[in-house]
Design a protein around this nucleic acid. Sequence first.
DNA 1: TTGATTTTGCAAATGATTTGCATTTGAAAA
DNA 2: TTTTCAAATGCAAATCATTTGCAAAATCAA
Lengths: 134, 134
Amino acid sequence: MPEKLKIPEGYRQTKQRKAILDVLENAEIPITAEDIYLKLKEKCIDISLSTIYRNLEMLCKEGLVVKSYVMNEDKARFALPDKKNYLICEKCGKIVIIDNCPFDKFKEELKEVHGFDITGHSVEVYGICPDCRS
Amino acid sequence: MPEKLKIPEGYRQTKQRKAILDVLENAEIPITAEDIYLKLKEKCIDISLSTIYRNLEMLCKEGLVVKSYVMNEDKARFALPDKKNYLICEKCGKIVIIDNCPFDKFKEELKEVHGFDITGHSVEVYGICPDCRS
DNA sequence: TTGATTTTGCAAATGATTTGCATTTGAAAA
DNA sequence: TTTTCAAATGCAAATCATTTGCAAAATCAA
């Protein structure tokens, strides 16, 4: 049961904003701006693409959403932070979320070696999914 | 001493192709198509951007080059596979290559859990570099 | 309810990347 | 070496995701 995300302090509660956040909360995998547009259109919520992009930008800046790119795709994908690490099948494009990303263990080591304070990371793993292998 | 990369079998040896590969071999970090264009212009090698993009696409398909995106940047970066994992400073944008990516150890686990045959991965880590912290 | 301010929608602008096509070039064959 | 032809290039135009300007609509505090 995912706790409902709140629109960050200082921003107004618009129905578009809430609708976008709602789509992101219910998405299984990272989705594109257009995916959001279409999903909302299905629910008869009319919203302009620029509004979607503007909100996505705001949500990323506030850290509620993470933007990423998939190889050979020409558009950005957006997801809540817990869905930012994923496997992509090179054949069919299927995306599977990696839970419990082991990368966290590596943060300390990175800090020691490079002196960076790590604030976040994004992992994309490519492979062939079971369905495509057979 | 990096061994000179060879243009893949089945493709012609053009001077543009060799020049692009040469720039990539000498790059410390992932670079953009335009970086390549400018670097070659410095060396008085005139080449069109479309040729660069076409070759980059080919090199990616052949696995000699890896494409990636950096958050808040609007263009793709390209690098040899050994430079595909990196740290990015959120303040100054500095990029530092991660050698010996620990992710390899995780491949087996991913295969077991999700059934994917892993073919590659890309890791971007964000943080604040030592210079920007102080 | 009002008013100041934020958001939105629309259409136009942007900018990286792609594509069509005529011309040039590499390399296999003669 | 010369010939031959598919592959590669350069240029300009086309694409297409994303951004931006601006007037109208919506939010929310007073």
